[in-house]
């Protein structure tokens, strides 16, 4: 039977390298995904994700086993990402600002898409979503990632980010509303003719100017 995180932490504290490796293997994807979405650079994200684990292992004795290890680790990860964002971009990120260079877009390849049309549509949607996500404030973006990409519950997010449950819900509501506005602005409004983009996949959705 697989060991729980708490058991692995106990073994790691006793000096087991295998336990540390298992903890990394178990949580590296979530940690990396969260940080990569926040900093939008896979190379930097990998570095910061490593930093997060190193910090976590360094502070393992302060971990309270009555809490979820993943919540504790993700809190360290998001703090690491925020520290980095503050260092490299001290000014407030404007939601109207252009998305920074999108190296993450290079990773967006899904061979599961069935037809060329489906693939084109999926690619358009991904690009639009990635751009909209990049336009969100980092603190909203992390909420969206945790809730919708990592399937975290409101309670877990609240514990992870040390926020009241109501704040998590209201921020998520605002984040989603902001995303909806950005998606509509980039041509995904419900009253738009879908044939425009689907039949011209290379052109991409038209930007509303008014």
């Amino acid at each position: 039977m697989a060991l729980t995180d708490a058991e692995l932490v106990a073994r790691a504290l006793a000096g087991s390298q295998d336990a540390c490796r298992l903890l990394v293997a178990r949580h590296s994807r979530v940690v990396f995904n969260l940080i990569a979405r926040m900093v939008r650079d896979p190379g930097v994200a990998e570095e910061l994700a490593q930093d997060s684990f190193v910090k976590a292992f360094g502070a393992l004795r302060s971990f309270d086993p009555s809490y979820k290890f993943s919540n504790w680790l993700l809190r360290i990860a998001q703090n690491t990402a925020i520290d980095h964002l503050r260092r490299v971009r001290p000014e407030t990120v404007s939601i109207d600002a252009e998305a920074p260079g999108q190296p993450i877009a290079d990773l967006l390849v899904d061979e599961r898409a069935r037809s060329p049309l489906d693939r084109a549509e999926q690619r358009d949607l991904r690009e639009a979503l990635e751009t909209a996500l990049a336009g969100l404030r980092p603190d909203y973006r992390r909420l969206v990632v945790l809730r919708y990409l990592e399937d975290a519950s409101y309670e877990d997010i609240a514990a992870m980010l040390d926020l009241p449950l109501g704040t998590v819900k209201s921020h998520l509501h605002r984040a989603r509303a902001e995303l909806a506005r950005l998606m509509e602005d980039s041509g995904w409004a419900p009253d738009r003719d879908p044939a425009d983009e689907v039949c011209n996949p290379g052109r991409g959705p038209a930007r509303r100017t008014g």
């Binding site: 990394v24 590296s28 994807r29 990396f32 995904n33 990569a36 979405r37 896979p42 994200a45 990998e46 994700a49 490593q50 993450i104 990773l107 967006l108 899904d110 999926q122 949607l125 991904r126 979503l129 990635e130 996500l133 969206v144 919708y148 990409l149 990592e150």
Partner: peptide, 13 residues
């Protein structure tokens, strides 16, 4: 959001 890929670190992470 299901269309967004879950990003993974490199193999030697």
């Amino acid at each position: 959001a299901a269309v967004l890929p879950r990003l993974r670190p490199s193999a030697g992470f």
